[in-house]
Write a protein that binds this DNA or RNA. Structure first.
Lengths: 260, 260
DNA sequence: GCCGAGAATGAATCCATCC
DNA sequence: AGGATGGATTCATTCTCGG
């Protein structure tokens, strides 16, 4: 019993609902590219139990009231919860499928455990350099987020050589408080074979599915909150689908070393 | 019963021997800055258990670089071993001491567990960007190593704001196959308060202790292999000690974003 | 001294073979 | 079966050397 799509076009299908309910109805996925709730926000447990909106709005540029679900779990339940959705994704993926999930420094080790507990082969860490972090005296500035990768058995061989570090500031106009820049998602997407089927079980405002469509891939997005599903559907509707054979080459960023 | 130093000057003391034997005789440490054996080098157990020189330097004329030991533990014993030396370091450190340890992507989660199991507060991930790594088709290039940090309780407040990402190619002339560039060690060193006592339980060719001396800090280094201890002693002897009050300011690298 | 061509290098990974 | 060995592979950057 396949659920009814909230939106559908020639490349993108969006489902409104809970990932754990909808995931088992899917199949034939070539890659997971996603940005789950990090459930971080403080070293102390008391920090983590405050509402998500309070934590993020303090540091964000967007002061409007945006809330999203599932971001106040403690470390242990975060591990269990991640293992569940990662295993569910594993079950609907083709052999040699790939996985790429964003995470912050605090939950990186836990997510890497969950990746392996969910059946995936642990493949590595890529770095999104945001350029600016909140400076704290005496410690390294936290100016990065991380993209953890995995695979279902051996990796699909492609001709892509994406860089291990990607430099991009956070976007100025965001419709979701953790929204990733389109260039960053396009970079993450390069791990999925051209023309493949991408799945984002925590779609948010739909940057993943939009960039999948724009780079000649197909995508399925799942989102619990109808406000974000609507935003994502609108973004996809405005995006042209470029079939794989016509997809332009992605240019790499210049190396920092080439400049000095 | 304090062991006999192998080398000593106004800023640096070097002990020849096993860290786990020598550590308990020390005290009054303000910061640990080190680069332990990663026990990495491949997904296959057979890859990990081959000689260090073979797994890391397979194609090259660098074979004249010295091999080193203790780099073939499996995941479980790597965790136990790291927890042991991290706890031993914790015990000889002053309150509010800091910890900075290099690691690669594969062992990062395990080392972060060991840091916490050893008593330290988990403080974050900084990135050493080497610029390029061996490419593998279809995956993100592994062009980084990581610097994990921790503290004994609250962190010492200093006026330093070291960047979270540091760009530097691997050094040209190495006397140890995993030798870090001096600029990278100087960056890592910024987490220790000026004038403080730095400890490196896996000294190798002595870049840590040399840069501690050069930046107005004092240091203790421990090394198992006399060939490396000798190299380190020679490097320290050639280095001028600049007392803390005369230490020049370290300039930050320009941001990549300022260039584009 | 400058420039270009060609060679060398990298805390790598995978797999076929051999014991 | 399982561990050890060796070869093939990938490319951005640096190094070497000749013109």
């Amino acid at each position: 019993m396949t659920p009814e799509p909230y939106y559908q076009d020639e490349a993108v299908t969006i489902y409104l609902g809970d990932s754990m309910s909808i995931l088992p109805t899917l199949s034939n996925i070539d890659g997971i590219v996603t940005d789950p709730p990090y459930s971080s926000g403080g070293a102390m447990r008391s920090d983590r139990t405050t509402a998500t909106i309070t934590k993020y709005v303090q540091t964000g540029t967007q002061r409007e009231s945006h809330d999203f679900h599932g971001d106040n779990r403690d470390q242990r339940s975060f591990l269990v919860w991640c293992t569940m959705w990662l295993a569910a994704c594993y079950n609907v993926s083709n052999p040699n499928a790939v996985l790429a999930s964003f995470i912050d420094w605090r939950q990186l080790p836990t997510l890497s455990d969950a990746i392996q507990a969910g059946g995936w082969v642990w493949r590595g860490i890529a770095v999104w350099d945001k350029g600016f972090g909140r400076p704290m005296p005496g410690r390294f500035s936290g100016s990065s987020e991380y993209l953890l990768s995995g695979s279902k058995g051996a990796m699909t061989q492609t001709d892509e050589y994406p860089p291990g570090i990607f430099h991009s500031p956070t976007p100025k106009d965001r419709q979701h408080i953790t929204q990733k820049p389109e260039a960053v998602m396009q970079w993450a997407m390069r791990i999925v074979k051209p023309g493949g089927m991408v799945l984002d079980p925590f779609m948010g405002s739909g940057t993943t599915v939009k960039m999948a469509k724009e780079t000649g891939r197909r995508a399925i997005g799942i989102e619990l909150d109808e406000r974000f599903a609507e935003i994502a559907a609108n973004r996809c509707a405005e995006t042209f689908y470029i079939p794989p054979s016509e997809t332009p080459e992605v240019e790499d960023q210049p190396s920092l070393f080439g400049l000095g």
